[in-house]
């Protein structure tokens, strides 16, 4: 008996698969999510007040032969009207910015390279080169993990210099924004690791392997692009 099968959920007026369309619209939602976090960062960045004297006294270090205060401002700064000496005169205070552009440029490069390996994994999946797909998926996962390693290092470094969530609005908005981005990278790693794991089953990723990897890739590239915006705004545009 010839039965005409009609499957719910496989119909598409636009020709775009429902699942891919969902991913695109979801990424639109994510734009507003990061938009709100970035706006918060920018609002506070413009006006970070000078620290209380107790903070200055607690975080003064000697670097290259002179005293600097760490862990308060994103970039280097000199302020001459916050610290009053015992004789009533002001002391000039030098602040060393917490942001380390060379190190974060390295981690940015790592994340950008992960987009390249992601493209190669999608190419492998779509053209039936399953070994190549697995290798490049693994490479993408590793690059994502290295990026997260840099982030953990950076967070700990900033913390040791005195900048935490509670320190000031720069700390709060910086850690929440980059923390949520890191969480997104981590979720991406989980997705790619799930795909890689599933690809070792006997049935592999099934006939739609190319589609699955491509849709995961959409998310991965989005998270990369958001990082480019965050990197530019936090690190490259001077205060």
């Amino acid at each position: 008996m010839a039965t005409a099968e009609h499957h719910v959920g496989h119909h598409s007026v636009t020709g775009i698969d429902n699942r891919k369309l969902l991913m695109w619209i979801f990424l639109g939602s994510e734009c507003l999510f990061f938009g709100a976090l970035i706006s918060t960062y920018l609002i506070f960045k413009a006006d970070i007040p000078a620290p209380p004297i107790s903070f200055i006294e607690a975080h003064t270090h000697v670097e290259n032969g002179h005293e600097v205060v760490t862990g308060w401002f994103p970039v280097d700064r000199v302020i001459d009207d916050v610290y009053i000496n015992e004789d009533g005169t002001f002391r000039e205070v030098e602040f060393a910015g917490v942001l380390d552009i060379p190190i974060t440029s390295q981690s940015t490069f790592v994340l950008l390279m992960s987009s390249v390996t992601m493209v190669l994994a999608v190419y492998g999946a779509q053209h039936g080169r399953l070994l190549s797909m697995k290798v490049w998926l693994l490479a993408t996962i590793l690059l994502g993990l290295i990026f997260l390693g840099y982030q953990v290092y950076e967070f700990r470094l900033f913390g040791s210099e005195g900048l935490t969530l509670e320190t000031n609005q720069f700390g709060a908005s910086f850690f929440v924004l980059t923390g949520f981005h890191g969480t997104h990278v981590f979720v991406g790693v989980l997705i790619l690791a799930s795909l890689l794991l599933a690809s070792f089953r006997r049935s592999g990723l099934g006939p739609e392997a190319g589609f699955h990897v491509e849709t995961a890739g959409l998310y991965w590239h989005f998270v990369d692009i958001v990082w480019i915006v965050i990197f530019t705004i936090i690190y490259l545009i001077p205060a």
């Binding site: 976090l37 709060a172 929440v176």
Partner: peptide, 21 residues
């Protein structure tokens, strides 16, 4: 909704993790 989510998360941090958004 994502804008509300961000606001709520920041409020959560203010209440639980002593930030001052």
């Amino acid at each position: 909704l994502p804008v509300l989510t961000v606001a709520l998360v920041q409020l959560l941090f203010d209440r639980q993790f002593t930030t001052s958004f």
